[in-house]
């Protein structure tokens, strides 16, 4: 019964603090109730999809991954499956894990600010938007045979044959890729007297720019494909990019 011995002891609040009960707990309970009501209401009116019994002999056309992976599936248009489905998501995960160790800007720790960390926010938001953009295209704008349809177009099976694709000659492709990464690494050294490099130090800078350039390169390859009908930038018997 130790608790009762201290019954009269006052409990004081520290300066910027409030009691968790009820200040926080009330909001949590309220949120839980609202979420439950929302889910039940939605579930009452909208049925979860259930299509026909699975049949290995009859492929769905288009066969779509769940929406949160549809962005990766969309990348299959531009890259081989080993990149779109395995290496790209792995790079994203590794990049996310490394993020706190790459971003050594001491400002903006624990409060919302854009001004004090413009570079980090622009890069992260670009990636975030890129991811959802791909998801939108993959889920909403891809019809039979993964053909592109605008929202106002009807999905049909009669669409014009896509233009033939070609590869870049290997030397050109390699030169282009090396050039891209080299210019990408060197260019920021001349912006604002290379402040990015000076802030990050060589290791963080190399990893950060490597990840960022890979993100930009992924988008760049999409443009090459869409505008110039280029299938592979680097085509070898072992691996194609």
């Amino acid at each position: 019964m130790e608790i009762r011995q201290h019954e009269k002891e006052p409990v004081e609040l520290k300066d910027d603090r409030v009691f968790t009960w009820p200040n926080l707990v009330v909001k949590e309970f309220l949120a839980a109730i609202l979420v439950t009501i929302g889910l039940l209401f939605y579930s009452f009116y909208v049925d979860a999809p259930l299509s026909e019994l699975s049949d290995p002999a009859h492929a769905e056309n288009p066969a779509k991954a769940p929406w949160y992976f549809a962005g990766l599936q969309e990348q299959l248009v531009y890259f081989d499956p080993w990149y779109a489905g395995v290496v790209l998501p792995s790079i994203i995960v590794v990049g996310l894990i490394l993020l706190p160790f790459l971003d050594n800007n001491p400002k903006g720790n624990g409060y919302f600010t854009f001004r004090e960390r413009k570079f980090a926010i622009v890069v992260f938001i670009s990636g975030y938007v890129f991811w959802y953009l791909l998801i939108y295209v993959g889920t909403a704008l891809r019809g039979p045979f993964w053909t592109f349809f605008w929202p106002w177009q009807e999905w049909t099976h009669s669409f014009p044959t896509p233009a033939p694709l070609h590869n870049l000659p290997l030397p050109l492709g390699i030169a282009l890729s090396i050039g891209f990464y080299t210019v990408g690494l060197v260019f920021p050294l001349f912006i604002k007297k290379g402040i990015l490099f000076r802030n990050l130090g060589i290791i963080r800078y190399a990893i950060t720019m490597g990840l960022l350039l890979t993100m930009i390169g992924t988008a760049g390859k999409m443009i090459l494909r869409l505008v110039f009908n280029i299938k592979y930038v680097i085509a070898t018997p072992w691996i194609n990019i």
């Binding site: 259930l50 769905e60 066969a63 992976f69 080993w82 489905g85 072992w238 691996i239």
Partner: peptide, 30 residues
């Protein structure tokens, strides 16, 4: 789990990527 066409082919899409894993998938590079 529902074992319907939707799930079956969605997982197929996923597994087609799995088999393309570099080194570890039978259709993957190397």
């Amino acid at each position: 789990l529902p074992w319907d066409q939707l799930g079956y082919w969605a997982i197929t899409v996923g597994m087609n990527m799995g088999r393309a894993t570099p080194f570890l998938g039978y259709e993957g590079p190397f």
